[in-house]
Design a binder for these strands. Structure first.
Lengths: 130, 130
DNA sequence: CTCGCCGTTGAACATATGTTGAAGTCAAGC
DNA sequence: GCTTGACTTCAACATATGTTCAACGGCGAG
């Protein structure tokens, strides 16, 4: 059996332009993200890309992830575990991974800045009066 | 009067290679960072660059900042307010700015991920059974 | 004084992240 | 059936972040 939900989620109907519009990036970027595994497409008989609902969302999430320092390759890696049509739980896992990435890097920043501050002579001038 | 500390902090004695060694980047990167305002140099009579103690530290901090999504231009901007030989208080201010940058972006990530999760039909499939 | 080692500059190359343009294909409407 | 518009691929260009290379200059040791 195939439920309405399954039809809706599995069928890939969005064109490049539509995904671009939905996600707020240029069509060229949509093709770029497909090429690099951030999104995936099926092809029509006449070789056109068709994306499902999740494509625009993946791109939006990818743009956010880029802002906290992840590369496209890393983002594609995080998305690699996603099913074609991710559910709320799948997205929650991705969100967790991304936030942990971001927080780990911020923690690293904090810690290393603290190191530099405490480690005499690493960043600080030796405070010698006379 | 010129104190020992002032002599030590103001004099720029490090060569490109030395700063590269201290900071753990290539000599070419040191020149790149100078060109883009992350570090500054004075020139010897024979035109060679000389950096002060803070150069290696600026580079280390810059590398950390890059990891949380800041560009070289942004980092140069953050460092722009620093005196030639920053003291502990100057570094503390820089650290605060960088951590706030990182946390703001992580907060943005969190918030937008939450938006996407809550905003029905943005990322989630409509959960319809039958 | 010559040699070798740094340093200098500028250009070319390399990778990441895209954008733009040219040339061709396909489907839909007049 | 011809035009139009959206799609395709591929190549060139653009920016950010560096690295490598070639050609050249100065300085200290032998």
């Amino acid at each position: 059996m195939t439920t309405t939900a399954e039809i809706a989620t599995v069928s890939a109907t969005r064109t490049v332009s539509e995904v671009a519009g939905e996600s707020g990036v240029a069509a060229s970027a949509v093709r770029f993200y497909e090429k690099h595994g951030v999104i995936t497409a099926v092809r029509t008989p006449s070789n056109q890309r068709r994306f499902n609902d999740s494509a625009a969302c993946r791109i939006k999430v990818a743009k956010l992830a880029q802002r906290v320092g992840l590369t496209v390759r890393e983002i594609a890696g995080v998305f690699a575990g996603l099913p074609p049509s991710p559910g709320p739980d799948d997205w929650a896992r991705v969100a967790t991974v991304l936030v942990e990435h971001a927080e780990a890097r911020t923690a690293e920043l904090r810690a290393r800045l603290a190191d530099l501050r405490s480690g005499t002579k690493l960043c600080e001038v030796v405070e010698q009066i006379d």
